[in-house]
Computed example of a mutant assay.
Amino acid sequence: MTFTRRFLMAASAAALGLATGAAAQDKTKVGFIYVGPVGDGGWTYEHNQGRLAVEEEFGDAVETVFVESVPEGPDAERVLTQMALNGADLIFTTSFGYMDPTINVAAKFPNVKFEHATGYKRSDNVSTYGARFYEGRAVQGHIAGSMTESNVIGYIGSYPIPEVIRGINSAYIHAKKVNPDVEFKIIWAYTWFDPAKEADAAKALIEQGADVILQHTDSTAPQAAAQEAGNVITFGQASDMAEYAPKPRVSSIIDNWAPYYIDRVRAVVDGTWESTDTWDGIGAGMVGIGEISDVVPAEVKAEALALKDEIASGAYHPFTGPLKKQDGSDWLAEGESADDGTLLGMNFYVEGISGDIPQ
């Protein structure tokens, strides 16, 4: 091989390398960290569906990466740091307990954009986003209160944070409206995803007389426990959980993250990303109501869908007075609706719910 040929080949290879490097730099890299496995059938599953929607929308222009089952706490900070060091341009942190790790790592990587789900701490390169799940809980509460025969509704809580407390209150208010005799029994699982704990909680509630189970945990284990019991209805959490339809699962709350993820990735791609706070619900399509099965009486189904439409249009707010707090003190006057600040920091039960909120 002549010197000239070797030189030209080397020059061509170098040029190709530069072109490949430039192409790699042009590709936007988007990371996701998940609190559970992508196959949990609930919360993490739907976030991962959003990630897949990003890949489909942007094709080769975007690369996505994810790490699943990341504990909330110091390990999350390690995973986030590694993701940023590996060249992520945008990172979605998809659980409440990632809030402080997100803020801490974002301060070290000012050129990386971060999006934290369900949190309230922001900075120049950290946005927050969440869904008004309490709107879906209102619809579930209406169905649950209408269908319970024992008048006992069980609720599996994950952690006693405002998001979960809002959901309990909203479901209770709307169950109570259609059934004044209804009683809520609440078990705190202290986990987002632990099928064994969730199943045990469901079984304990059923043993206490609950014939309806609501959950703010992520697995389908409560559905399986209800199915085994035979006379209990449930609602899918975060995803449709339709494999348990038409009974025990009679409807669901579906978290639709895909439009938000696509919009925020596009903002990074085109250079328009800014730190924002997003809190959308049924009207914006971030919260969906899964198909109501025929196990639900036609009249109750029609009422539930009408309630959904009223919430979506803004004609009705699920927290509308008169409402009192658990201790009997006045909260909302007749026709008054709760403000977002109170809802975001909610740390109390409404009147009629028994038991204390763990501290």
Rank of each mutant, 00 (worst) to 15 (best):
E163W: 03
R6I: 03
V70E: 02
P110A: 14
F3N: 15
G328S: 05
I33D: 04
F92E: 03
D26V: 01
T220Y: 00
T276K: 14
V350Q: 05
P160R: 01
E198M: 08
E63D: 08
G97I: 05
S95K: 02
Q359Y: 01
E291Q: 10
T94Q: 10
I357T: 11
I173Q: 05
R78V: 14
Q140K: 06
G285F: 04
V250I: 11
M83C: 00
A333K: 11
G271M: 02
H116V: 13
Y159E: 13
Q227T: 06
L305R: 10
K203P: 05
T320Y: 13
A14D: 07
D89F: 01
A138E: 05
F348S: 14
V112T: 15
A224W: 00
V67T: 14
I187R: 08
P195A: 09
G97N: 03
S146D: 04
D339N: 13
E55I: 05
E63N: 07
T81I: 02
N86M: 02
D339K: 09
K308Q: 15
R264W: 05
K308E: 14
G21S: 13
A229V: 07
S69C: 02
I282A: 11
P162N: 08
M9N: 12
V30A: 01
K27G: 04
P318H: 06
S219F: 01
F7S: 14
K177G: 05
V54P: 02
A13L: 15
A258W: 01
P74G: 00
K308V: 09
L18C: 13
V182Q: 11
E68Q: 14
P297F: 00
N256D: 08
V65A: 06
I254S: 00
T191G: 06
G352K: 08
G31T: 03
I253Y: 00
S127R: 10
Y244P: 08
T20M: 14
A76H: 03
V105S: 09
S354D: 15
P222S: 03
I253K: 00
E183S: 12
Q215A: 15
L90W: 00
S146E: 09
G355A: 11
G230C: 08
D263E: 13
H142L: 15
N256R: 10
Y98R: 01
V67I: 10
S219N: 06
D277V: 13
G283W: 03
A138C: 05
G230H: 01
H116C: 10
K203I: 13
T272F: 03
I289M: 01
V250S: 06
S252R: 00
M286E: 12
W331M: 00
P246M: 06
